[in-house]
Design a protein around this nucleic acid. Sequence first.
DNA 1: GATGAATGAGTCTTCATTCAT
DNA 2: GATGAATGAAGACTCATTCAT
Lengths: 215, 215, 215, 215
Amino acid sequence: MKVADKHGRIIQAAIKVFARNGFFNSRISEIAKEANVADGTIYLYFNNKYDILITIFEEEMGKIIASVKQKLASTEDPCEKLEIFAFQHLSLVEKDRDLAEIIQVELRQSSKFMKEYRNRKFAEYLQIISNIVREGQEKELFRKEVMPGIFKRAFFGALDEMSRFWVLSSKKKYCVKTAARQISHFFLDGILNSPCHAPKKIGKRRHKKKKADGR
Amino acid sequence: MKVADKHGRIIQAAIKVFARNGFFNSRISEIAKEANVADGTIYLYFNNKYDILITIFEEEMGKIIASVKQKLASTEDPCEKLEIFAFQHLSLVEKDRDLAEIIQVELRQSSKFMKEYRNRKFAEYLQIISNIVREGQEKELFRKEVMPGIFKRAFFGALDEMSRFWVLSSKKKYCVKTAARQISHFFLDGILNSPCHAPKKIGKRRHKKKKADGR
Amino acid sequence: MKVADKHGRIIQAAIKVFARNGFFNSRISEIAKEANVADGTIYLYFNNKYDILITIFEEEMGKIIASVKQKLASTEDPCEKLEIFAFQHLSLVEKDRDLAEIIQVELRQSSKFMKEYRNRKFAEYLQIISNIVREGQEKELFRKEVMPGIFKRAFFGALDEMSRFWVLSSKKKYCVKTAARQISHFFLDGILNSPCHAPKKIGKRRHKKKKADGR
Amino acid sequence: MKVADKHGRIIQAAIKVFARNGFFNSRISEIAKEANVADGTIYLYFNNKYDILITIFEEEMGKIIASVKQKLASTEDPCEKLEIFAFQHLSLVEKDRDLAEIIQVELRQSSKFMKEYRNRKFAEYLQIISNIVREGQEKELFRKEVMPGIFKRAFFGALDEMSRFWVLSSKKKYCVKTAARQISHFFLDGILNSPCHAPKKIGKRRHKKKKADGR
DNA sequence: GATGAATGAGTCTTCATTCAT
DNA sequence: GATGAATGAAGACTCATTCAT
């Protein structure tokens, strides 16, 4: 029960408190109170305040990555995979807003160490996306010009901004499913009505030409 | 000779210092030193440390919005507009990394006030994107199913994450032009090689069908 | 061995320091040093510097009032009571100069809150005097024209000024007993050599008449 | 006109501001504003903030002493003189509450310098009272046992406390004339109903005897 | 292991005072 | 003389961390 796992209780309390106040405006004493633990006890489990933040990231991101990877295993289709990724990402945000807020907001604090640390751990998550892209390109489903290194960021960024919307606004205009579908379709099909899809160099102003030919 | 404009000097110094250390790890005295000004002088121009952050956002976002809007006026084509927006956004990030870092990272601090404040000012910027989308839809260039409220976030998020890459990594693998073009093309054309573009309800798994029809 | 009662130690230290420098010229760090306590420890027991002052007043005035009331219980004679009050008041000042100085001087700081606060607590002390007067009037020992509301202030003021003399001058020309006796006699018998004591309206210039009748 | 006498304007402004906030809570800039003068200008007329306080005391006490002495010259009767003194003192307080508040409250700040300084200047005022007493004793109007050094403080203290009542309470239950008369009568006649006024050693419990002889 | 009272380093902010104009 | 922008010293208060129990 709640009594035993102090480590876990502290982490959960910290997630709640950090999400509520932000890392810098959170007090160790507040976390201790929330966890029903003495202030000093926290230092039996963590080196310092910052270490709690790192640990949250480490443990929770690990879970997330594992979970997403597992879900993706259900299909071979890169298109589907992208949509599944989008759906999973947004679902997680919806399910655990506090955690999402911390990963979204608090972990962007620009402590040099954090920046690098986060990047390393984070790269793993982004990698999932670029792997899907490469897979799609190998299967000749996705265009070769698409640069996976750019795509992974763009795709993640789109989801991330969408979830920030939820995290910060607390009212949810769109349902997760709709959002996940819309976003993955943006990236799969684009938003153009009926583009001419002859393979072309990305970077040539194709749609300008369209305009020229009468549209 | 000391430059007269203390307000401006303090803002510039603060941008530099906040970018270097983060808001909470920055000291007023450091900003003062950087601005060649006495500590107390800062309080002649700003109410408190936080006020400096707000002011940076207010003034600089104002400039950015104005600048972007002006650039967009050069064309009528919504497709081009998106690419221009992307290019402008990324260029600004490249030109003033410190400022970009602050807007990217520091302004996400979760002070409840900031969250709301930032959102308000920020909405203006996002609005530019959704207006382009609506314009494109009116001209029947963009699909009707695209929800501008989702698109604006997805598009901005893609650019934002891309620029975080620059801000945080400090090495730049891709040039701005390439990135801007790639990203706007993701959203215009999608990444699929030769999709079937009969208008369809977004939400129906179109690419699933493709799979079904033999691909 | 360090004494356990930190609250008490801080109060005593503060009395000493406030008396030495005045409230506004006293530093928390000085009080902490005097109390053999860390600066921060003070804030475990008091909300702020001002709160220490308030607490001193509250606690010590409580003791004083209780002590005086107890001493007064030893007699029924209002005349004696006045002298006892005078003696007690001056004795207390003599015994604890630092405390007396604070009550005398520092608590007159004109913070609007303090003014009112002090008055409330203080009224209790003055009340003791006016009650003695009313008692004396009921026993027909004291003249009916005497207004207890004025008398209490006059009597207290006389003692108060006398003690300021001690507090500020640090040399004591008169012994407490003498001063207490003189002052209570001023108020009981007046200073006139052989006045005509037919009951009269206070406010009629009695001593003028005397002059008229040949003196 | 208001324009010319900056010294006077600053003094008047300071009296108002010090009375409102207390010395330590008053800002030079507030005084400057009240006096319609630049902050720096104050330092053309005064050495520092403290110097303003001293000057207020010096100049205003001078005026008060002169004024009181003049009024006292109108009679030879020590009894009358005491009542005149009381009336004058209380009238002054009523006329200029701000000034009274400062002299009452602010000048009691326990800066060592102020304490001594105030005492010196103040002694002059108290001297007036003890001189009246000595005069009365020489004329055999007042008892010889009365110690002028104690009396002057007691009498002044009574008036002083009475005026604090006005200064702090802002409502005035008793009129100045009544208060002045009551207080001077306390000291002239005492408050006993019909004391036996055979000259006696002050210090012998006379009123005890009364009780003994049947009252 | 657990506690929470105690610590004291660290910083924002104020404001009397100065001085170039 | 007058100004008021600029200065920078100083201090109340906070809070992460420690350690005796």
